[in-house]
């Protein structure tokens, strides 16, 4: 469509960022939720620390309820999903009704999850909807600039942290010869107050001996 307004550019960026945040936190939360099912010990604090969010939760049950579904908690998954929706709903003519529909479906599924005794089932469907949203964005948005702005927003700290954790987990299960020191350095970089993207890329490039 060519020329893009300031507001829509901003919305595209935040749509990418919030959708990524929902996807990432949903995955992490689902893992925590699973481990909290049987645990008598309340260790939701570790989760808060790992995401650098304030621990405002009374206990495990309060954490499960409010971190997932607390509309008043700006860090909650539902808040992030609604922020993604707020941006998406004003971008119909940019991203198309089909792409937008996946965010809309994620909202409905989140409402179902809130009422359900088995929210993980619904979380899986939300994850599916977010993945479909990205796939649809790639497939159906003709304007390269629009796609790129969404993807720039899609990269955030938790995304990088998750990728580095995944890299650590995978690389030691391969035959690749890699630098232990480099891996430790990557984990430090991921936790640094300011992400140094260039340094992260250089460290990843030098990780494997060719």
């Amino acid at each position: 469509m060519g020329i893009k307004s300031v507001m829509n550019t901003d919305r595209l960026f935040w749509l990418g960022r919030y959708s990524e945040r929902v996807y990432t936190t949903l995955k992490l939360f689902s893992l925590s939720f699973d481990s909290l099912i049987e645990q008598s010990v309340d260790d939701h604090r570790a989760f808060c620390e790992s995401l650098e969010i304030p621990d405002i939760y009374r206990d495990k049950d309060d954490f499960i309820d409010r971190y997932a579904f607390g509309l008043d908690d700006p860090n909650s998954i539902i808040s992030n999903l609604y922020r993604a929706y707020d941006n998406a709903i004003e971008l119909r003519e940019e991203i198309g009704s089909e792409t937008l529909s996946f965010i809309q479906m994620a909202i409905y599924e989140m409402k179902s999850a809130k009422r359900s005794e088995a929210p993980l089932l619904h979380f899986q469907k939300i994850t599916d909807a977010i993945l479909a949203f990205w796939g649809c964005a790639d497939d159906q948005i003709d304007d390269e600039n629009t796609r790129n702005i969404i993807k720039i927003g899609k990269r955030d700290r938790t995304d990088i942290q998750r990728d580095i954790r995944r890299l650590s987990w995978r690389i030691c299960r391969t035959d690749l010869i890699y630098s232990q020191e480099g891996l430790r350095r990557l984990e430090e970089l991921a936790e640094a107050p300011e992400l140094d993207y260039d340094e992260i890329i250089r460290t990843v490039d030098a990780l494997v001996e060719c």
């Binding site: 469509m1 020329i3 893009k4 307004s5 829509n8 709903i89 004003e90 119909r92 003519e93 198309g96 009704s97």
Partner: peptide, 10 residues
């Protein structure tokens, strides 16, 4: 928003 999308205009 729907008409803007369908007409291909901002």
């Amino acid at each position: 928003s729907y008409l803007a999308e369908q007409m291909g205009m901002p």
